[in-house]
Design a protein around this nucleic acid. Structure first.
Lengths: 238, 238
DNA sequence: ACCTGAACACCGTTCAAGT
DNA sequence: ACCTGAACACCGTTCAAGT
């Protein structure tokens, strides 16, 4: 009974290779991000995801607990490309800047993820590590936690705003519509945004520099007092 | 035939009053915003909306074209509370500041609208008017359109980020989870955020002041050149 | 262990039928 | 003119049944 030799004669080895990659969280995450990039988050249904993977929708539930977990997986994938500022060895301003730039680029590459990722609870380890890395870097430079946390929150939304505004499929503002509603200035500035993504990054970088300077001037203290330079009161470390 | 007197005898006038408000876009918008405030945008289904209005779902389609239009209506309602900086009569920095504050408050009052409103094309007249008003104010103060547009985009996302982060039902970051994943600094700063909304507004206001100063320093030009004062090259107005 | 078909509850939207 | 029940296509998810 066991070990029957009733195998097809003319498939000596060729038949052993499965024609689709074995399912696991990694390939599911990758497929999900691809669909989101191509068709937006709404297009990433369980059916679309399953059929891209050559499988039926219920099969996915053997590897993930539900749609929520796809959010976590995709977030991990997007966040992966962001540098850890606590391991950069740079002075805090430069580490902050490098972090901000790579944060912006990660999301500018995947603008369709922004809507969901920016307003969904963080549950994945890579993202928690990212925050911790930023806080550690700032802490080691002498900043207090509250200030550092405000800094990263503000930075995130500034970066996400620019990344989305200039890279998302659907434009937020339609020039023709603005004109028809008696908003000529708005209509003018929203015309011809073909090559704007490039300009947008330059603008963001410029803004980011200013943003960091703002914190360097010790937010909450009269700028004239702190004007001009180095890190605030350095905490003693053992 | 016409004008039959076959009316119920004992309902001389009382029966004339309908027990539910007549349906129109205004009441639909208001009901939608209430549901979104209470249960989040996902809770605002056509069924939930209809039943709050004492009506069946298909009835809504006699007044609105579909769910997309609900977005427009709700946006109009939220944006309504924001001041028009071009009619404030204030100096540009103060007008900018007042605009930013009322923008922040409008969304801090309705944090559950942020996810959808911040990533959905603008189609409603009130919001287009809001942008136009800001651009006109900046233009009259001598700023060029591109700079002004960047200013309002950056401001929006900064404001939305803070408004969401500190007022949304679901916290973005869970302290316990952070601790369990080896992120002690993040865990510490996200503990006890009970009365944070108040602190958040103060933080945002402080940040907003700096943000405006940043633009006052003529973004894109070496700050040491422009350091310290008044509006940029004033355009001639007829 | 993993995939599947069938089924369920719940969406948004359409439409012929009523008044 | 406006509301309704019934119906449709499409979701996410569950589960017993297969291998």
């Amino acid at each position: 009974m066991m070990g029957g030799v009733a195998e097809d004669v003319q498939s000596p080895r060729r038949s052993g290779r499965p024609r689709r990659p074995p399912l696991d969280r990694g390939v599911i995450a990758k497929a999900a991000l691809e669909i989101i990039d191509e068709r937006g988050w709404a297009g990433c249904t369980m059916l679309a995801l399953a059929s891209r993977l050559g499988v039926r929708a219920p099969s996915l539930y053997h590897h993930i607990e539900g749609q929520d977990q796809i959010v976590d997986l995709v977030r991990g994938l997007v966040i992966e490309g962001i540098i850890d500022p606590s391991e950069s060895g740079l002075e805090w301003r430069e580490a902050f800047f490098a972090f901000g730039v790579s944060y912006y680029r990660a999301f500018a590459t995947h603008p369709n993820t922004i809507q969901t990722l920016s307003t969904t609870p963080v549950r994945d380890a890579p993202t928690l590590r990212m925050y911790e890395g930023f806080l550690r870097m700032m802490s080691e430079a002498g900043w207090d936690l509250t200030r550092s946390y405000e800094a990263v929150i503000g930075l995130e939304h500034l970066a996400l705003g620019f990344a989305y505004e200039w890279n998302a499929e659907e434009l937020m503002l339609d020039s023709g519509l603005a004109l028809r509603h008696g908003a000529p200035l708005l209509a003018e500035i929203t015309r011809d945004r073909t090559e704007q993504p490039v300009i947008a990054e330059a603008t963001f970088l410029s803004l980011l520099r200013r943003y960091i300077e703002m914190f360097a001037l010790h937010l909450g203290v009269d700028p004239s007092e702190a004007a001009g330079f180095d890190p605030p009161s350095r905490q003693e470390r053992t």
